[in-house]
Design a protein around this nucleic acid. Structure first.
Lengths: 175, 175
DNA sequence: ACCCCAGTTGAGACTGAGTCGCAATCGCAC
DNA sequence: GTGCGATTGCGACTCAGTCTCAACTGGGGT
């Protein structure tokens, strides 16, 4: 499987005199086993439970290589740290992220992409990458969220407010 | 100055039985003195040098309030941590971020906004916020960046590669 | 003007994600 | 098979942000 990316990775290593170690291979395999989006520690746990002994530092180091080689993308989704995702060559997408269940939905809208290019041109800006994420409530979670909304609707008291302060942390860029 | 936001903040505190302490006022003033984009520790240093004694915890706590009240926005720009920005009521903008000099340029493109709405509709997604950032090289830095590019153009050797690995960390979502 | 207490503060310990240095180990070209 | 540069694991470290708690304070009630 995934022999295409395998070849890219191999060549990438070769070209800069790096070695294809068993750890790198294991990480690569795990990654391409099925995961679209994942985080570094997730991989660590997964590999560890699969008998494979690997250190956290190596996870990060290898992930760096994969990102650099263009096989994997690094995104800042959610609160802390990075998330990684497999990149299909030449494809690009942006993200819808559910605040409720954490699900990440990918979308691609060519019209937005070309408008971005226009914006860049207007400012004389040379774009190298972009990240575009909408946060909210996904289709599946909307009923649940609405229900909760009702229950809490007249809880504007101080106790509730304190809690809400914390909850609100997850909104990156209000519109 | 900024009496409009001042009033909003005051009312926000009042409504939930919170106090307008001298620390909160000082932070607020500093923030509205001139800064469009800033980070938490920047404020800390600035206030400390201005004789005002304030703790890091308080900075963060107060920033939480300001974000919650809608006066300030919290964005994940760049590598680590958050950046904050003043929000003019009802206005919204996205960001162009220069990898070279770190400058943040704001832009607003109504057509992109409405396309976003369409995307949400398509997926039955209820958007609460979004963040949209393009990273690259700004107008001012392009000549400099191009020059450097030339010098390094045939440095595909291992030593350089190692360094480049580190450098590349700053690209969030490759397109 | 004074009291009172919920809300607030500062200090510093703590956390979690990610990084670094280094001695031991491993890939792979010869 | 050897040799050596690349790689690994470990644990210590950093950095941003959070938490705890005892001491303090703003401001409504009197």
């Amino acid at each position: 499987m995934s022999s295409r990316e395998q070849a890219i990775f191999r060549k990438y290593l070769e070209r800069r005199g790096l070695k294809l170690t068993s750890e790198r291979q294991a990480l690569f395999d795990e990654l391409f086993a099925r995961h679209e989006h994942f985080e570094a520690d997730e991989l660590l746990v997964r590999l560890r439970t699969k008998h494979k002994k690997i250190s956290r530092a190596t996870i990060y180091r290898t992930l760096d290589l994969l990102v650099d080689s263009g096989i994997v993308g690094r995104v800042r989704i959610g609160e802390s740290g990075y998330r990684y995702e497999r990149l299909r060559a030449g494809e690009h997408h942006d993200h819808l992220i559910c605040n409720e269940c954490g699900r990440v939905i990918e979308f691609f809208e060519p019209a937005i992409e070309s408008l971005q290019d226009e914006v860049c041109e207007k400012y004389g800006f040379l774009a190298i990458s972009h990240s575009h994420q909408l946060r909210g409530i996904c289709k599946r979670c909307r009923p649940r969220a609405a229900r909760r909304q009702n229950e809490a609707s007249h809880a504007e008291d101080a106790a509730e407010a304190a809690a809400s302060r914390r909850r609100l942390r997850s909104v990156p860029s209000p519109r």
